[in-house]
Design a protein around this nucleic acid. Structure first.
Lengths: 253, 253
DNA sequence: CGCGGTTTTGAGAATCCTCAAAACCAGTGG
DNA sequence: CCACTGGTTTTGAGGATTCTCAAAACCGCG
C-alpha cells in the first residue's frame, strides 16, 4: 500500500526479537524485558524511496524512527536556499529525536537510498522513561553521541583545509558504515554526490570537485556508480589528522 | 580553601530551593519532589577563575556541572593546535554531560569569566533516571537543545559569509544571555576577545577583526572593555537571516 | 537518440589567509 | 608617576584559497 511521497507504511516484518542489526558487535546486549518493550513500542515499518523527504523542518512529527536499512542525511537551509548538511544517517541511527523531545523539527531529513525505517510513537516516550530508566538513559546516550559527531564536524568545517575536510568526511562516514556492516565484499559504497559533499564541507561544488580529484589522484578513494568508494581509509585518517571512532558498544532503540 | 588550578571547592551556598536562576521565566516549574532530589544530587559549588580549564578533552570526569554564574566555552583542538570553539556556556547550562554519559570527554571547557558551578556526581545519574523519569527526560531535552544549537552553528560556519557569521554569533549569544537575565542596565557585555570570535567562526584573527569593524561601523555593536556590547540585536538577526531563539521554557538541572 | 542529473574544465574575481609591525591598553613594579 | 610587559586590537600588503559564471563532457535511462 504505497502512500503519498513515495512511502509505504507496512505491517511490521522484522519483530525486534530477531532484528537484523541487533546481533552486530557494535550494539550492546538488551535485557529480555527491554527488548519486549521496544518491540511493543514499535508501531510498524516505513519504506522510503531514494530522494524522499522523511522529515521536514518546522513540522511537528508524531513519530520517531530508527533506520533499519538505507542511508539518509540531515540538513538545514538558509532563507535564500543555501544548504548545510549536518550529518548522515545509517542503520541503527535514530531519526527525529530532537523533534520528539523538543516539539518542532529544526532540520529536515532526506533519503539517499531506498530505506526501511522502524516507526515509534512519540507519545510513548514518556512511558519508556517511566518504566525503563535504562532505556531512557540510552536515549540520552544517543543524543550525546549525535552531539559528539556534530562537534567533530564543526571542528572540521571550521578549522580544516578543503582536502583535510574531504578526507575527514569520507573516513568518518566509511568508519561508521563499517561498524554497522555496510561493507559489501570489502569496500564501502557511499551513495552521495559531490553536491552532497560540498554542502557538508561548506565548499562550492566546483572546488569540491577539484578537491575530490586530488584524493582520487592520490589513490585514497575512487568515484564510481554515482558514489564514493574508499580505497585507503587509514591514509584518509592520517591526512585529516583524525583518530577514528571510539570503538565502544552502543544502545540500539 | 583554594584548590589547584585556580579553583575553590566550597560548601554549598545556594540551596536549590532558593536557586537564583530557577525563578527566571525561561525555566519550567519543578515539582517539590524533583527539587528535593536535585538539591540532594548537588554536592557543592565550585568557584572557577577566569581562564581556568574546567574540563579537558580525554579526561574521565566524575562530575557534572551546572553554571550558576559566569561564562565559559567548549572547544576542540586539532593535533597541530588549531582551535574550534563549539559553543558558549552561560548560567543554567549543563557542563560535561557528554563525558558523564559516554565516558571520556571529547572536548574541553574554559572559563571566560569567574564562574560559580553547581557540582553533581556522575554516579548518581542512574538514580536520577530510576527515580525521576521526568528529570531523565529533561536531561535528554537538554542534550537535544545542545544539539540544536550545534546544528545552527554548523549551518553558520558552513554556509554564511564572514559578516553574516559574525552577526549570527553575536545575536545568538546576546539572545541567549538575555533570557537568563544577563543584561545589566540594558545592554549585554559579552566577555570574549576577537580571537574567540575567530575561533568560533572558523576565520583568521585578522579577517575577523576587519569583519567586526564593519559591524561597529554600521553601529550594530560596540567593542569595549575587552568585550562586545550589542547595540542593535534586531539588525544583527536580519543581517544573518536568523529567526531568533524559540522562546519555550526549559528545564534546569 | 535525447534528456536530466552529475562531473569536469577553464578563467577571472572575491574572499580570506599569512606575515609583519604598529598601536593601544590595563596592570605591575620600580 | 613612569617605564615595562603581555595581551589585544588595528593596519597594510601580497598571496593562497575558494568562489562564481559558463560551458563542455559524461552517463544512465527511457
Amino acid at each position: 500500500m504505497p502512500g503519498q511521497n513515495g512511502r509505504a507504511f507496512a505491517r511490521r516484518q522484522y519483530p525486534c526479537e530477531n532484528c537484523p542489526l541487533r546481533p552486530l558487535p557494535v550494539f550492546r546486549e538488551f535485557e529480555k524485558k527491554e527488548l519486549a518493550f521496544i518491540s511493543n513500542f514499535k508501531k510498524g515499518e516505513l519504506a522510503v524511496d531514494k530522494g524522499a523527504t522523511v522529515l521536514v523542518e518546522g513540522s511537528h512529527s508524531a513519530h520517531l524512527y530508527t533506520v533499519l536499512s538505507g542511508w539518509a542525511f540531515r540538513y538545514k537551509l538558509l532563507p535564500d536556499g543555501r544548504r548545510q548538511i549536518l550529518n548522515y544517517l545509517m542503520p541503527g541511527d535514530l531519526i527525529g529525536l530532537q523533534g520528539s523531545v523538543m516539539g518542532e523539527m529544526q532540520h529536515s531529513v532526506e533519503a539517499l537510498s531506498p530505506m526501511l525505517l522502524c516507526v515509534f510513537e512519540r507519545d510513548n516516550l514518556h512511558e519508556l522513561y517511566r518504566n525503563h530508566p535504562g532505556l531512557g538513559y540510552d536515549i540520552t546516550w544517543i543524543a550525546s553521541r549525535e552531539e559528539r559527531m556534530l562537534d567533530e564536524n564543526l571542528l572540521s568545517v571550521g578549522r580544516r583545509s578543503a582536502i583535510e575536510r574531504a578526507a575527514y568526511l569520507i573516513a568518518f562516514i566509511a568508519s561508521r558504515a563499517k561498524v554497522v556492516g555496510l561493507n559489501g565484499k570489502q569496500s564501502i559504497q557511499i551513495p552521495i554526490t559531490q553536491q552532497h559533499v560540498a554542502d557538508t564541507l561548506g565548499l562550492s561544488l566546483v572546488h569540491t570537485n577539484k578537491t575530490i580529484r586530488k584524493l582520487i589522484d592520490r589513490k585514497l578513494i575512487v568515484w564510481r556508480d554515482g558514489g564514493c568508494e574508499v580505497v585507503d581509509n587509514e591514509a584518509l585518517k592520517l591526512l585529516a589528522g583524525w583518530e577514528g571512532l571510539g570503538e565502544g558498544r552502543r544502545p540500539l532503540i
